[in-house]
Simulated assay, not measured.
Amino acid sequence: MKKPSAKPIDDDLREEYDLSQLKGGVRGKYADRYQEGTNLVLLAPDVAESFPTDEAVNEALRLVIRLRKIPGAQKKAAAKA
């Protein structure tokens, strides 16, 4: 089977965009940060309704963390479940 012939690229870059004037760009400037990843968490819509801001979510999660550190709290929580 023959490959379709390559069509010439339609260069729609405007004449006023002179790329030779772009100086000082650094290739890969944010590459390391990108590879570190992210800790973005998406909340279910019903959960998101309960928290007006990201700080409210953080505050609630910090409370859960503190409650987990209370001796015996995990045993009581497991018994309820």
Rank of each mutant, 00 (worst) to 15 (best):
Y30C: 01
A73D: 13
F51A: 12
N58E: 06
A79T: 00
D10Q: 11
G37S: 06
V41M: 08
S5R: 01
L63N: 06
D12C: 04
A6M: 10
E16V: 11
N39Y: 15
E16P: 01
D12M: 08
L40G: 09
L13M: 07
R14A: 15
D18R: 15
G72S: 07
D46A: 14
L63G: 12
A73F: 08
E55L: 10
V41D: 05
R66D: 02
D11F: 02
D32Y: 01
I70W: 03
P8G: 00
A44D: 07
K69Q: 14
K29I: 07
E49A: 11
R27I: 12
G28I: 00
K3C: 09
P4K: 02
A31R: 14
V26F: 05
E36R: 10
V26G: 01
L67Q: 11
Y17K: 14
A79D: 02
R33I: 08
A6K: 13
D18E: 07
I70Y: 03
R62W: 11
E16K: 12
Y34H: 05
F51V: 02
P8W: 00
A60S: 10
E36Q: 08
T38F: 03
K76Q: 11
K7I: 07
K80A: 11
K2E: 12
R33E: 04
N39R: 10
E36K: 07
V64E: 06
A77Y: 04
S20T: 15
V26E: 11
A73I: 05
L40Q: 12
A79I: 06
P71D: 15
R66V: 05
K75V: 13
A81T: 14
Y30H: 11
Q74P: 00
A81M: 12
L63F: 09
